[in-house]
């Protein structure tokens, strides 16, 4: 039985004898607190500092002396005018806008087909989950092979045409992004399916039974009873995919390396390239910090809203 409990990140019910264990509780949470502090506080302060300079690891001075290369807010004003950055951001948003709805609708459709019992359900269910467990880098390599001009995708397309199809998917600026999105949809539709199915099963049966007795059609029951009750699950599923696609890197980078040109360059790929190839680390710090600030504001706002929504 699935139990859709609420997200309750802050409100906790301490044990009755909480006071006696408070000391132990502090000790137990200490390692996690230190790790979070270590990855959050120090790096962010460091990024603030470096982003105000023109430092790069090639300058030959250690990072703490970066103030010798102080340039103030120049990195941030550069960022505003950096068309490659905005292009990458826009491209990431585009991938999100295509992949998330497609994954959602496919996942929802599959969940509907799986919600009641049929022969072979367990095996088919497990098989459907396989793509999301494939290491993303390996999935990237699979699709790299599939989309070669002499590869299986073209081979299948050739079945419908008289001439053999020889499309160079990954080196065509327009098609490369499609190939990358196909790979993402292939890999992550199972995740949508998994979450939405769990949510659908947790919708109580009683109201649906009543609706059946009243003669409500399947579509009506689905849209007026099932979907509204899945609202918080749907939001969580969508949020997970939005967050993950914002970070998209592994599969895409192995398939195209962000190319041809910048045709598939997303935010993470862009930052990676500036980090590894152009080595302008102070600028990367500025980009990263800008992203962190925006995401923090958005996430705090979203989580507050969700908590308020569940309080009622």
């Amino acid at each position: 039985m699935t139990n859709a409990s609420t997200m309750e990140p802050v409100a906790e019910r301490p044990a009755a004898s909480a006071s006696t264990g408070a000391g132990l509780g502090l000790w137990l949470t200490l390692p996690a607190q230190l790790l979070v502090l270590f990855i959050a506080l120090f790096p962010i302060l460091m990024q603030v500092y470096i982003s105000l300079t023109d430092w790069s690891p090639l300058d030959g001075i250690p990072w703490w002396r970066a103030h010798e290369l102080w340039i103030g807010l120049l990195n941030y004003t550069d960022l505003m005018a950096d068309s490659r950055f905005w292009g990458a951001l826009w491209r990431t948003m585009f991938v999100m806008a295509v992949c998330v709805p497609v994954q959602f609708l496919l996942g929802l459709g599959l969940a509907v087909l799986f919600v009641d019992d049929f022969h072979g359900k367990r095996v088919l269910y497990s098989t459907l989950l396989v793509p999301m467990m494939v290491v993303p880098a390996v999935a990237g390599y699979m699709f790299f092979m599939l989309f070669q001009s002499g590869g299986p995708v073209n081979d299948l397309l050739s079945l419908f045409t008289s001439d053999p199809v020889r499309i160079a998917w990954l080196s065509d600026p327009d098609l490369a992004l499609i190939a990358v999105m196909v790979a993402d949809i292939w890999q992550w539709t199972p995740l949508m399916f998994l979450i939405l199915l769990a949510g659908m099963i947790s919708v109580p049966q009683d109201q649906q039974m009543a609706a059946i007795l009243l003669g409500a059609s399947w579509w009506r029951r689905f849209f007026t009873i099932v979907l509204p009750r899945m609202k918080s699950i749907i939001i969580i599923a969508l949020a997970i995919r939005v967050i993950e696609i914002f970070k998209i890197f592994d599969t895409l980078f192995i398939m195209t390396g962000g190319g041809p040109g910048v045709a598939t360059e997303t935010i993470s790929v862009y930052i990676y390239k500036v980090t590894q190839q152009e080595l302008i680390w102070s600028y990367v710090a500025a980009i990263a910090l800008a992203i962190l600030i925006v995401l923090s504001v958005v996430s705090v706002f979203a989580i507050k809203r969700m908590q308020r929504g569940q309080g009622t």
Binding site: A22, A32, V36, A40, P43, M46, Q47, I271, T275, A288
Partner: peptide, 27 residues
């Protein structure tokens, strides 16, 4: 059990939210 570390759930969700690329320079 002891209600300690009430900041952790939110902090950890946020940690998950950020692209790893965005903290890798300091790391």
């Amino acid at each position: 059990r002891f209600g300690q570390g009430g900041n952790l759930p939110l902090a950890l969700i946020q940690l998950r939210l950020f692209p790893p690329m965005a903290v890798m320079i300091p790391v």
